[in-house]
Design a protein around this nucleic acid. Structure first.
Lengths: 245, 245
DNA sequence: GATACTCTTTGACGCAGATCAAGTGACAGG
DNA sequence: CCTGTCACTTGATCTGCGTCAAAGAGTATC
């Protein structure tokens, strides 16, 4: 697979940045430009329900969305956390498999499915880029499975904070230096759904990490990390998880 | 994405069946034929360790393999179960991210990475087929996350049995009819690693399901399912999971 | 046929995290 | 200012599953 990532130009629309190479596919790019459109959602709004017809794919421009699965009796498990530039929707399927919810105000860049699929069939780079993104998501899902299946509540919380710190850092393209400081974009209940815990346990473990000096809280949603290595150790990860690359 | 699956011809090599369309890509197919080779492994043998250099991709021809992640203190979580025709290895990465282990005697059809990637770049169908397979895996991973995060031990066991039943049925292209009967290709410990439990809990819950008449055991590894709907209900799934399609 | 494996089952007990419940603080609206 | 709501914290208690331990069952080796 050729790497075109070095000469990608990013602009307002993340799909331009993530899914195609600007230099090599400029004509297809302009066709993508023609079929794209934007949708806005308010915090808390459900974008689409599992089982609904879904005739678009898209990527998050600003804000945060979640994918969740719900059992009949109401038990919920988050299975995806979408930050800006993340992709939603599956080419080749017309029914949503998960609830997609905006947890903050959110702007999404959408493409109607049919023309997007046509374009994908015509331009190999898009399919290849999408494959790469999907493989990354699969890796993230497998990391998540280890967390859900084998980590303690304390390790789960430490993992979540470091995952969010890592993703925010990657997003802003800045190296973490000095005292790291992270906004948690989720409520305690959403964190619980992410981690397979109850919200009470989430709250208790955050308090415990704070008492032990692993993190410091400023308000409820803002976390400061005096020692990232300490946090990663608490998370039970055997590597730095790409944090310091 | 065009659907060529209807006129695929399957033969000894699953990659032919799963990754490309025989009618449309016959010339590329013959090139795939030229670069493929087979490797055999014994039950229990580790195919590759996480962190090792991995210069091939491949797909399982016969037998069963697992992907597992291990924490420093030895806690293990299975993150992938590979049945015949499943694909291993990630184009664009040269280091294995998981331990890959043969749990039964196994034959794998391999392609050296470099020529496979060249071929993928040259033949769009391969990338598109691989994207589809990866998206399927991602869906399975997300179902698995719900299981790990929110299901009880009993539901986990019932889910595992129905998952294996479904996949075996799909493999043999036969509709389940009458008394379903399933071979569990995993030890109790491997099931525990799949489900995020201990082997003792797995054993206890299997005994409980047997006592309650949900399943019947014939030896340790062979399960009979008198009532598949009952089992699916025990699994906590809200659909039949494609069982009866 | 005895021994030594590995895989599995079953029992007794303890604990991490769920459940149930009460209380705090921030903020909006009347 | 009072009141309601929402997100969060903290406490008390319960329980599902993990841990530790022992023993049964099947298979291979000599």
């Amino acid at each position: 697979m050729q790497d075109h990532s070095t000469h990608v130009q990013c602009s307002e629309c993340p799909i331009r940045h993530r899914a195609v190479c600007a230099k090599c596919e400029s004509d297809e790019l302009s066709r993508l430009e023609q079929i794209k459109y934007y949708r806005s959602f308010q915090a808390g709004q459900t974008i689409i329900w599992s089982g609904d017809r879904m005739d678009f794919v898209g990527s998050v421009v600003t804000g945060i969305a979640t994918l969740t699965q719900t059992m009949e009796d109401g038990r919920r498990q988050m299975v995806g956390l979408l930050l800006p530039s993340d992709f939603v929707g599956r080419p080749g399927r017309s029914v949503a498999a998960y609830d997609v919810t905006a947890t903050t105000d959110l702007v999404m860049c959408c493409f109607r499915k049919k023309p997007f699929e046509d374009m994908m069939a015509a331009t190999p780079h898009i399919a290849q880029r999408l494959l790469e993104m999907t493989l990354d998501e699969l890796d993230a899902a497998r990391e998540w499975m280890l967390l859900l299946g084998r980590k303690t509540a304390r390790e789960k919380i430490a993992s979540l904070i470091s995952i969010i710190a890592r993703r925010e850092a990657a997003l802003h393209l800045r190296k973490p230096k000095g005292m790291l400081s992270v906004d948690l974009p989720l409520t305690r209940e959403e964190m619980a759904d992410y981690l397979g815990l109850t919200l009470e346990t989430v709250s208790r473990q955050i308090s415990a990490l704070k008492k032990d000096g692993v993190i410091a809280l400023e308000g409820n949603r803002h976390v400061q990390i005096p020692d990232i290595d300490r946090l990663l150790e608490e998370a039970g990860d055997d590597s730095d998880g790409g944090m310091l690359v």
